[in-house]
Amino acid sequence: MPVQTVAGSLLDALADAELVELARLRDEPAIRTLTGRYNRRLFRLARSVLRNDAEAEDVVQEAWVRAFTALDGFRGDAAFSTWLTRIALNEALGRRRRQRPTIDWDSYDGNPSEAEIINFPVSAMTSDPERTMARSEIRDVLERSIDELPDGFRSVFVARIVEGMSVEETAELFSLKPETVKTRLHRARSLLREALDRQLGPALTETFPFGGSRCERMTEAVVARLCRS
């Protein structure tokens, strides 16, 4: 028998708890709304563990299947978003453990519940092919640098800075003390700055280029004003 559902235009305004109740009844619009609400977070955090887009996507799908089939066991002791994200992180860590059995899991404090990664503002520069290419290259450098952060720092950095979670949310998610979250974030930022300085430092001398046709055009304009008037 089809389930009575809330109009699609109203679903986005519902709280997680209300959507979860609808999802328990396999209400498809509610399920779609929940997945749309948390897909990005799950992907980013799964990728922070696996450093592989395809693997992270698989984790997201598996996490949703596990979550929706276990909704009857969700009692609301933690926020739905935290419960869901832990499922995804456990799946990601399980996969990585199988891939790299010698990984130093102490960097996650022994806790097995321990990203397109950064979006830049889209502006008029997207109409400039050179600037668009530069923007893409900078994002690639940032993503690679984040990927190279140590395991215990990378996930905290992605949760706090990339995904915008609060210190308290991050601490709860990874079962860490808030002070530990702050310490790891500070260290991750320092490591990231060092990595970016190594990779981008030499390029700074080449920023704001003014050569080629632009230089020639300016020269011609100056000559015209000074010598041909």
Rank of each mutant, 00 (worst) to 15 (best):
D109F: 11
D53Y: 11
R98A: 15
I118S: 04
W105S: 08
A46F: 12
E57W: 09
V60C: 03
A78F: 03
C227Q: 12
E55T: 08
R51E: 02
S9E: 15
P101D: 02
E169Y: 02
S175I: 03
L196M: 11
E55G: 07
L149K: 03
F68D: 03
E163C: 10
E137D: 14
K177Q: 13
V60Q: 05
S48F: 13
F74N: 05
C215K: 15
E172A: 14
S9A: 13
A203Q: 09
S107A: 15
E130Q: 10
A7K: 10
S229A: 11
R32E: 12
I138S: 04
T219I: 12
H186I: 00
T207F: 02
L34P: 05
V20E: 08
L192V: 06
E148Q: 11
D140A: 13
T132R: 12
D72R: 14
E114C: 13
R75C: 01
E216Y: 12
N52Q: 10
L149I: 05
M133Y: 08
L14Y: 09
V20R: 08
R135K: 04
A221G: 10
A13N: 09
A195N: 07
G94H: 02
Q199D: 15
D197N: 11
D72V: 08
T5G: 10
M133A: 14
N111H: 10
V59T: 12
L142K: 00
E116Q: 05
E28V: 10
V3R: 12
V59W: 01
R225F: 06
P2T: 01
K182N: 09
V167F: 07
R131N: 07
R24Y: 05
A56K: 04
R24E: 07
L42P: 02
V20A: 07
T180V: 12
R100D: 15
R189G: 00
I31M: 13
R98L: 13
F174E: 07
I31C: 01
L93R: 15
D27P: 03
F157L: 00
E172S: 14
S229R: 14
A88K: 04
T69P: 00
Q199W: 01
A115N: 06
P178Y: 03
E148V: 01
E18T: 06
A70H: 08
V162W: 03
P2M: 05
R97Q: 12
P112I: 11
E179A: 13
P121A: 11
L149Q: 05
V222G: 08
L192H: 01
M218F: 13
Q61R: 15
G212V: 10
L142W: 02
S166L: 02
P178R: 02
R144S: 13
A79C: 01
A78R: 15
A221R: 15
K182W: 01
S213C: 00
A124Q: 09
G36I: 06
T82V: 15
L11K: 06
E169H: 03
E143L: 04
